[in-house]
């Protein structure tokens, strides 16, 4: 049968592989190559060695975006997961309206980044109005605005994953801990958290990568203002490519650094939390 199937490559695998080559594989390899060149339209690429990387890593905007992204990721990952986990704990109890709450908390996750950005721009500017300023007045407003937005979007999603994780804990495990005289905090610390470690792994992974890659909401909420100080890495790369003439090579080098950083951070995180997963 396998030999029979093998001949069907053009029907089964070719369409996807061809599209994949056009939309990903070729652009990826080309992008890697172009990061070592100077170019504006690809056909005029001139090899320049590591100079793009040096310029990227000494660019004030890029370093600022890097620091902003790291700070943002750190704060949002912690707040999203803490709140989502707490809500999941509450919603796995017997409480009326459980499904209703779940439905409402998850809803913002379906709204796209551009729309989210403008919704929160209205709200945050409305609050800041009392002080006579707007969100682009000071980078710290943009920062906290993005954190609030991220929380609103991601909490429901993470909560759903935690609910599934908590629901999978065998109830006799918790009963046994109660019989042994453990209080609620001890049960949480020594039974529930170790048992939902797989969910924690997933949620940390999703919140870290989503915070790191945030673009649409950043563009809509502040567009980097004031003067690129609230631009995260993805937005800074976009602006380097399309905002300044002749700096595409630097933009591509920034993109390679961005990719390597994201891959490194997520692999370290996966390894770190996977080691803490236990069997029931």
């Amino acid at each position: 049968m396998r030999n029979n199937l093998k001949k069907y490559y053009p029907i089964f695998a070719l369409p996807t592989t061809a599209a994949f080559t056009v939309a990903f594989l070729f652009p990826f390899v080309m992008g890697l190559y172009l990061s070592f060149t100077r170019f504006t339209t690809i056909s005029d690429a001139e090899f320049t060695g590591l100079s793009n990387y040096i310029e990227a890593l000494t660019s004030k905007d890029f370093l600022n975006a890097l620091w902003f992204t790291l700070k943002f990721t750190f704060v949002s990952v912690i707040s999203v997961n803490l709140i989502a986990f707490s809500l999941a704990m509450l919603l796995t109890r017997k409480i009326k309206g459980r499904n209703f709450f779940r439905t409402v908390f998850f809803m913002p996750n379906l709204i796209g980044g551009i729309v989210l950005g403008y919704i929160w721009q209205l709200i945050i500017n409305g609050v800041l109005e009392r002080m006579g300023v707007t969100i682009t007045f000071d980078p710290k407003y943009g920062f906290w605005g993005l954190v609030v937005l991220m929380n609103w979007q991601m909490i429901g999603y993470m909560m759903i994953i935690y609910i599934a994780g908590i629901g999978n804990i065998p109830s006799d495990l918790i009963d046994a801990a109660k019989v042994d005289g453990a209080n609620s905090f001890e049960i949480l610390r020594h039974v529930i958290i170790p048992m939902v470690m797989p969910s924690i792994t997933i949620c940390l992974f999703l919140t870290i990568t989503n915070s790191f890659k945030l673009f649409d909401a950043n563009l809509a909420l502040t567009d980097g203002a004031p003067s690129r100080q609230t631009a995260m890495l993805a937005l800074d790369i976009y602006k380097t490519f399309y905002g300044t003439v002749g700096s595409q090579g630097i933009g591509q080098a920034k993109a390679v650094i961005f990719f390597l950083l994201l891959a490194a951070v997520s692999l370290i995180q996966l390894k770190f939390t996977r080691e803490r997963e236990v069997e029931a």
């Binding site: 994949f20 070729f26 652009p27 890659k213």
Partner: peptide
């Protein structure tokens, strides 16, 4: 190759993909 593509952010291939 498919699995690898999942960890690559869009910005990495943005410019070259649009040109392609």
């Amino acid at each position: 190759a498919f699995v690898f593509s999942m960890v690559v952010p869009f910005q990495m291939v943005m410019f070259t993909m649009v040109k392609t």
